[in-house]
Design a protein around this nucleic acid. Structure first.
Length: 125
DNA sequence: AAGTTGACAAGGA
DNA sequence: TTCCTTGCCAACT
């Protein structure tokens, strides 16, 4: 009925969470990518906002969302970045010395079910 | 009601 | 390449 709250497909944050829930372990997606997949292109910041409001009890794989630079986004509470990186490393995501993930290698695509890409194609040369 | 904030992103220097 | 500025837009004061 019309007396109930926003339905899943109607609530932007619910759609954002639905997209994140689809990211397989060992893969990552960027904020902008999640927003676009949730039919909210241009609302990358809302993805971060949704995660900030995420209840502690949530089982959403929030750690698989990183920024376009390939690094875990800085956050108000220090220490969480280290925690997020740790969670990802346990899933097999490798970070370089600068604390960045190779997006070409670990970025998840909706139609991509494979675990992880083992190598990146050689650059033209 | 108006100004500020922020788990972003793209472009210029 | 990194750093800084600008654009973004809902949520929050």
């Amino acid at each position: 009925m019309s007396t109930q709250g926003p339905r899943r497909d109607d609530d932007p944050y619910a759609r954002i969470r639905a997209v994140i829930a689809r990211i397989p372990a060992g893969r990552v997606a960027t904020y902008g990518q999640v927003a676009a997949l949730a039919a909210l292109a241009g609302h990358a910041r809302q993805v971060g906002y949704a995660l900030r409001n995420l209840p502690e009890s949530s089982d959403l794989p929030w750690q698989r969302v990183i920024n376009q630079k390939g690094e875990v986004s800085p956050r108000s509470a220090p220490g969480y970045e280290r925690y997020q990186q740790h969670l990802l490393e346990e899933e097999g995501v490798r970070f370089d010395a600068a604390g960045r993930v190779d997006l070409e290698r670990y970025r998840w695509e909706p139609d991509d079910d494979r675990p992880t890409r083992r190598w990146k194609p050689p650059r033209g040369r």
